[in-house]
Amino acid sequence: MGYDLDFSVVLSGRYLEMLLSGLATTMLLFVSGWFLGLAIALVLTLIRATPFKPLQWLVAAYVEYHRNVPLLVQLFVWYFGMPQLLPLSVNRFLNQHNAELGFAVIAVSCFMAAYMSEDFRSGLRAVPKAQREAARAMGFSFLQTMRWILIPQAWRIALPALVNQTLHMFKGTSLAGIIGVVELTDVARQIEDNTFRVFEAFGVVTAIYLICTLTLMLGGAALSRRFQLRT
């Protein structure tokens, strides 16, 4: 077997720069997708908590689409489908401004939002009904009850599931490479293409993913300890 592991090629010069910029892109995609996803998820959760049926069904349809269609297909729909519906001038503008990353952020956040809103919903259902009643009896409105009483309990209950979803989504960002976002996995593939250093390129990327996900897990565990809901 004539394969000598040599990380120095991958971890220096141009390739190191590529790795770092890939990591930066992955982080950008992850962080913006996560926060946007959280915002959408909260709106979805609120809509689903209202007694207005047609809106609830709309949210249910949204959730089921995003849960049952592969993320890769969703990326394709955004990246290849959306431009067909937009006027040429808008497309031209998008193409000059990193359309790949933009559509990837949208796809990833919509995907994330569907899962997060389900976690919030089951969290909300786990909060005893009497809590809502106690708050309403004090004079909290529906939204105030959500904001100050129910969601603070729901997210504590949902925290382990949310951490799980977050990890899932972090790894999901690697699919964005396929529509041309130069993120970490895509960089690894390019480096491997140029150097034939398969194990080094993917080994380094694996280590980076692992460090990130372990950090997220530890952070999640710390949050769980800090915000544990005891009843």
Partner: peptide, 8 residues
Amino acid sequence: QQFNLFPH
């Protein structure tokens, strides 16, 4: 009856 304090 059940107090219903906010546990958080």
